[in-house]
Design a protein around this nucleic acid. Structure first.
Lengths: 118, 118
DNA sequence: GGAACAACTCGATGTACGTCTAGCACTATG
DNA sequence: CATAGTGCTAGACGTACATCGAGTTGTTCC
């Protein structure tokens, strides 16, 4: 399936029929899979949990770097993945960059996977 | 994070604090990530949607092979991933093997990610 | 037992990706 | 302006994995 490179915009909230509703076409399946892939890494799951914990204050790269024992480049990479998938928002504040969870986007994603949930 | 190889049993329904509840430890983050990884592939998302469509009848390797235009080896690989992650059940019926969605496992997984859902 | 069908396993191959170091860009404060 | 703090980008390296063809196992039916 990954014949062509996935240079796709994922930043918008996902909108496609639920997986349980029957066969998905290639585009929808790819949209779901790429967003899931953004979350399907231990470091990123941990990061998400830390961003959740920070709440509306948001969290900075350097904080995660200490809490996860990863280099700043690696944390930046993961934050970029999550942001590009639309799961985190990003806001510059002075020399800091604050990341926060986009709960709507996360909610939309899980609803596609399991609509009985909501 | 993937310092050690993930030879972990995923077949049981996931049970860990929700990601939104605060920092996850390494084991929980890995448990979540590995299950998500099982789903984070376009072919597997498509497969899941087809298995959903088949309902309680279940679906066979050879059917998916035709519907997805993949080799039987590749389909078998993907079904194995989903089964090992506990998202599909597997039952031999004569010379066929029927796969069905384990909705409870899927539900538990999305609840860990977004508990507000249920 | 033998033929056909279904699914799985094995090995090979190419691509994707997590991680790091090093370097660069931007902002705030002396 | 200089310095420090913060985050990003670029390139490199090793591992993981999606895919396939070929071979193997298990089942049914003649």
């Amino acid at each position: 399936m990954p014949k062509s490179l996935p240079l796709i915009d994922l930043s918008s909230v996902i909108c496609c029929p639920p997986v349980a509703a029957g066969p998905l076409d290639d585009a929808d399946a790819l949209a779901v899979a790429l967003r899931l892939k953004a979350l399907a890494d231990p470091a990123r799951v941990k990061i998400l949990s830390h961003v959740f914990a920070a709440g509306s204050d948001g969290v900075r790269n350097v904080e995660l770097m200490e809490q996860l024992d990863l280099s700043d480049a690696t944390v930046s990479h993961h934050l970029g993945q999550l942001h590009r998938a639309g799961l985190l928002t990003r806001e510059r504040q002075g020399r800091n960059v604050m990341y926060r969870v986009d709960r709507e986007a996360l909610n939309a994603l899980v609803r596609v996977i399991e609509p009985d949930c909501c």
